[in-house]
Amino acid sequence: MQQTSTLKRVIRALSPLPWIGPAVVLIGVVVVWPVVTMIQSSFLKISRFGVTQGSNGLDNYTKLFDEPDFGGVMFRSLVWVVAVVTLTVLISLALAQLFNQRFPGRRIARWAMIAPWAASVLMTAIIFKWMLDPEVGLINMILHDLGLLDALGGVDADPLGRASTAMPWLVAVAVFVSLPFTTYALLAGLATIPVDVYEAARMDGASRPRIYWSITLPLLRPALTVATLINVMNVFNSFPIIWAMTHGQPGYSTATSTIFMYILKGTDIGESAAMSVVNFGMVIVLVAIFLRVSKWKTEVS
């Protein structure tokens, strides 16, 4: 009798396996296995042709931390993430609030918003690079016609050739391609807020700013948390925009940790793997800090 009861409990415990099993296998193959391989590779000596030449201990990490550009790259990566995510969320909040209102052409405006998201990120970056060409770029031509080019360095000004102007343009392009997803995520959050809550607040005499800060933002927090979290991970690991527009140049002045990792791969795969581990660790730390600060488990009262 006891064996039958134990068997039933085992069957009951394993009953979800056919449903979650494929997802667990997919996560193991796509996520866990590459991470384990990445960590193992960071302790190996690997030739530039991919041939493993034995253990290298902590030498890959020592060499990485001794790189003169390592500190600047990591600091720039943090600035890159904070700037892009902050601007994306703030602009998306305004756009979501706008698209949540009824106005003529709202459906067309919403469809147009999808365009930067639907297009290839690499293609978008290349188009912006062409528009910023110092000789025939559309943006430079407009700035010239407006008389603003002289203030930016004259006719030969190359917005992507100087660190002072290249990084702001990279941030602008990253925000441009990040807006659609974030805006639609916040729109979905706005759609879940009951209309009755707004009506009750108006009956109590609450002003629009008061309603927004005391009702809309708190009830929008779950959608805002998810959108921000995904943006942090995507932006930190962003590669096509910077690589297509500047290759991290001049020098390493526009390189983030992902670009630096790719450049290192050309000379030392083991050191590049160590950079990958550091990059992965920083993403985990950033996500943990964000979840801690956002108090995502706290119920909205």
Rank of each mutant, 00 (worst) to 15 (best):
A23P: 01
M141H: 14
I289Y: 02
W296I: 14
H247R: 12
D204I: 09
P18S: 08
T298M: 15
L87T: 00
V195E: 12
P16G: 06
I289G: 04
Y252W: 13
T216H: 06
G21S: 08
V29G: 07
N56I: 00
G21Q: 08
F49K: 02
M233Y: 04
P240N: 03
G266L: 07
G281S: 10
M74Y: 05
Q3M: 13
D158I: 05
G205A: 13
L229E: 04
L170D: 05
V89Y: 02
I91Q: 03
P250T: 10
I284F: 14
V29H: 08
F70C: 11
M1E: 14
G154A: 10
V29E: 11
R106C: 10
L187G: 09
L179K: 03
T88Y: 07
S301A: 14
W80E: 04
L143I: 15
M167D: 05
G205H: 13
V283N: 02
P68F: 11
T165A: 10
D69L: 14
I126M: 08
D66M: 13
V173I: 15
S238F: 02
A172I: 12
A288C: 09
M141E: 14
P250M: 05
I289C: 07
L7N: 08
R106W: 12
R221D: 01
L160T: 04
